[in-house]
Amino acid sequence: MKYLKLIRYQNLLLLAFMQLLFRYGFLKFQNIFLSLNDWQYGLLVLATILIAAAGYVINDILDQETDYDNDKRNVIVGKLISEKAAYNLYFALNITGVGIGYYLANVIQKPSFAGAFIIVSATLYMYATSLKQMLLIGNVVVALLLSFSIIIIGLFDLLPATYEGNQTEMGVIFSILIDYAIFAFIINLIREIVKDMEDVEGDYNNGMSTLPIAIGNEKTSKIAAALGIIATLILLWYMNSNLMPTKLYYAVIYGLLFVVAPMIFFVVKIWNAKTKEDFHLLSTVLKWIIFFGILSILAINLNIMENVKG
């Protein structure tokens, strides 16, 4: 269990679910050819979660003092697992993940695409060693990496199967993946800021440079609220522009109940949030918003199928 906690298995399961959902709840419903078979796509998911797991491990290795200050109950490296064992696990996860990525890049006859896994692995290491200590840079990097886990589906499953005759159709599908990647980026960026507010004391004691440390939790909460309002308005605009005209009313109701309503709850609560418990709750709310937001791709597909039957 200690190793599962170290690699944040719950987050990895959510990541795997997200990638599987896009394949079997969206792409498989489209009348298109996909580059990877089911086994190979499973390897793509595995490579993604292995490299993400390695990122969690190296972050815990280099963040022991900060984690101890923030919440000593959650300290694993140096307490439950030795630093040497953690480093061995880090290298094993990275080598396996990049190796699988290299194999898949050759399967789709685009060996240069293996560089994507190397870049992500290197970025996660840079985040743990230096980027996370830079004001907002670390937050942006983490948010970008989550959104890239959506875009990589298009790179490996759609792009190699695109030719002149299906460019328009593939472009539309790829643009939908990009829309969801942008959604994941915005919400996760807000969540990273909220997590910084939750961990402000430990981060300050260890010389970190985060937004709450620079301007205080009160002002940061107002910025998070403003970002939440912007995200909510974008969601409402997107549903009105893309779902309402195509009569996807069930998907709109789903979005209002499970994505927009929690976002409004977040905006209201973050405005006056002050305690560590408040920020932890709001961070969890944002994680569920990401989950239900990604799940909306299935709601949209089911609504389309219902409309076709009707």
Score class of each variant (00 low, 15 high):
Met1Thr: 02
Leu6Ile: 02
Arg8Leu: 03
Ala16Phe: 01
Met18Thr: 06
Gln19Ile: 04
Leu20Gln: 03
Leu21Ser: 03
Arg23His: 01
Arg23Thr: 00
Gln30Asp: 02
Ile32Asp: 03
Phe33Ala: 13
Phe33Thr: 14
Ser35Phe: 00
Asn37Trp: 01
Tyr41Ile: 04
Leu44Ile: 07
Thr48Trp: 06
Ile51Pro: 07
Ile51Tyr: 04
Ala52Lys: 13
Ala54Cys: 07
Val57Trp: 12
Val57Glu: 09
Ile61Tyr: 10
Leu62Trp: 15
Asp63His: 06
Asp63Trp: 08
Glu65Trp: 12
Glu65Tyr: 12
Asp67Gln: 13
Asp67Thr: 10
Asn70Val: 13
Val75Tyr: 10
Val75Cys: 07
Leu80Phe: 14
Leu89Ala: 13
Leu89Val: 11
Phe91Met: 03
Ala92Leu: 12
Leu93Thr: 09
Leu93Met: 10
Asn94Gly: 03
Asn94Met: 03
Val98Tyr: 06
Ile100His: 01
Leu104Phe: 08
Ala114His: 03
Gly115Asp: 02
Ala116Val: 02
Ala116Asp: 01
Phe117Cys: 01
Val120His: 01
Tyr125Leu: 10
Met126Val: 02
Met126Ser: 03
Thr129Val: 08
Lys132Tyr: 06
Lys132Met: 09
Gln133Trp: 09
Val141Asn: 04
Val142Gln: 05
Val142Ile: 15
Leu144Phe: 15
Leu145Trp: 08
Leu146Ile: 14
Ser149Phe: 13
Ile153Cys: 05
Leu155Lys: 11
Leu159Ile: 15
Gln167Glu: 08
Thr168Pro: 00
Thr168Cys: 04
Glu169Trp: 14
Glu169Tyr: 15
Met170Phe: 13
Val172Asn: 08
Phe174Ser: 09
Leu177Lys: 01
Leu177Pro: 02
Phe183Gly: 01
Ala184Ile: 07
Ile187Cys: 04
Asn188His: 12
Asn188Asp: 11
Asn188Ala: 12
Ile190Val: 15
Arg191Trp: 03
Ile193Met: 13
Lys195Cys: 01
Asp199Thr: 09
Tyr204Arg: 11
Pro212His: 12
Ile215His: 00
Asn217Ile: 09
Glu218Ile: 13
Ser221Asp: 12
Lys222Phe: 13
Ile223Phe: 14
Ile230Gly: 08
Ile230His: 04
Thr232Ala: 13
Met239Ser: 01
Asn242Lys: 10
Met244Phe: 06
Pro245Ser: 15
Tyr249Phe: 00
Tyr250Gln: 00
Ala251Cys: 00
Tyr254Ser: 01
Tyr254Glu: 02
Tyr254Gly: 00
Leu256Thr: 00
Leu257Tyr: 06
Phe258Cys: 08
Ala261His: 00
Ala261Phe: 05
Ile264His: 01
Ile264Glu: 03
Val268Ile: 07
Trp271Asp: 05
Asn272Val: 09
Glu277Tyr: 06
Ser283His: 08
Lys287Gly: 04
Trp288Thr: 06
Phe291Pro: 00
Phe292Val: 08
Ile294Ala: 04
Leu295Asp: 04
Leu295His: 11
Leu298Lys: 11
Ala299Arg: 14
Ile300Ser: 08
Ile304Val: 14
Val308Gly: 07
Val308Trp: 15
